[in-house]
Design a binder for these strands. Structure first.
Lengths: 196, 196
DNA sequence: GTCTATACACCGATAGAC
DNA sequence: GTCTATCGGTGTATAGAC
């Protein structure tokens, strides 16, 4: 892979996190990585094409981190504990979540990587919760799908509060709060009933 | 109050919700309300000044709605029920929450109305929760401040998920989920009927 | 108070030399 | 593959007539 091409992707990845899509211009990307306009339009059809590659690279990164925890054989509650209690820098925002407010993201091609990221989180969290219910380790009155949505929302919303109040810690409070609520639903597995 | 001036504020309010701050240009505001450039810069120092007035007007509106519920004498859980189970149009996003991702919002003057909105929600929710604890109607193991942050985060994050998945209902699922979790912490010092 | 004309910077993209 | 020059369009704001 060409080094300039990779540098363009890396710079776009960084600037998307820092300023979002609409507010990031090709010129800013070029300044950031020291490339020239000619390289940009040689390697990519345009801003949108580069952004999609950069977003997909970021999603791969984030999903790999997520899978380290949710793909492990930790007990279900410990998975959520590890994921939710990771320290986050609230004001920076979520590299994916912050993009959805950009007007251009209503374009479906631009939205695809973001959709992929959140669908992955939601699906694997709700699978974990569903298995916990089957093992009688989780209260059965709440739907795993809705519960997963609530957890992901608490994280994303925590970033919003952090930026709104200019306070890096708000997101961590929100994550702690939703973890406490989740912990309240944990049940000790009871001995398996024997049919007959 | 001059009618043109008011029309400019109303149009900016609308466009801020629709497109955010950075992506809304003075020309778009003028097209939206039919005013001319001269009127704009006669009544307002510039885009930023108009946006601040429009944001403050929106916050007043949202806070009035919020206070209708949280300023009432409903039981604490019913307040959260009414507020959280209001149907929301997820893809439109929260008129305040969507603004925090705009790079320009790191400017403190622009952030002030947003800060005021969220501080109001958080303070009054945590007061309600604190009083519920004193009345022994709410589990005492979780901090009211953290719980309030979790509730507001679930709403805001729900909007993010809605926009990410292009699904109006995600935000309502997230709100339902956090309400269920909250309901699980209710204690019956006195008889309380709660549907849902 | 409102209008039109204008200024200047930056946007995303292209052309063509090397 | 990379560079510089340039394009048409738009953003924010100002000037000055009426």
């Amino acid at each position: 892979m060409n080094a300039t091409r990779q540098a363009l992707i890396d710079s776009m990845k960084e600037l998307l996190w820092l300023r979002g899509y609409d507010a990031t211009s090709p010129n800013q990307v070029l300044d950031h990585c020291g490339a020239g306009k000619g390289s940009f339009y040689h390697h990519f059809k345009g801003k949108k094409a580069l952004a999609i590659e950069a977003m997909n690279a970021r999603v791969d990164e984030l999903i790999a981190d997520f899978d380290l925890i949710f793909g492990s054989d930790l007990p279900w509650l410990n998975k959520f504990q590890q994921y939710l209690l990771q320290p986050r820098t609230g004001i920076k925002g979520c590299p994916m979540g912050r993009l959805v407010s950009d007007p251009s993201i209503s374009d479906n091609e631009l939205r695809t990587p973001i959709d992929r990221y959140f669908k992955h989180l939601l699906m694997h969290m709700s699978m974990t919760l569903s298995q916990a219910q089957q093992a009688e380790q989780l209260d059965e009155n709440t739907s795993p799908v809705i519960l997963a949505e609530t957890v992901v929302s608490a994280i994303q919303g925590g970033f919003i509060i952090s930026r709104a109040l200019h306070d890096d810690q708000s997101v961590n409070s929100a994550c702690l709060g939703v973890f406490s609520l989740l912990k309240g639903l944990a049940r000790q597995a009871e001995p398996m009933a024997v049919a007959g």
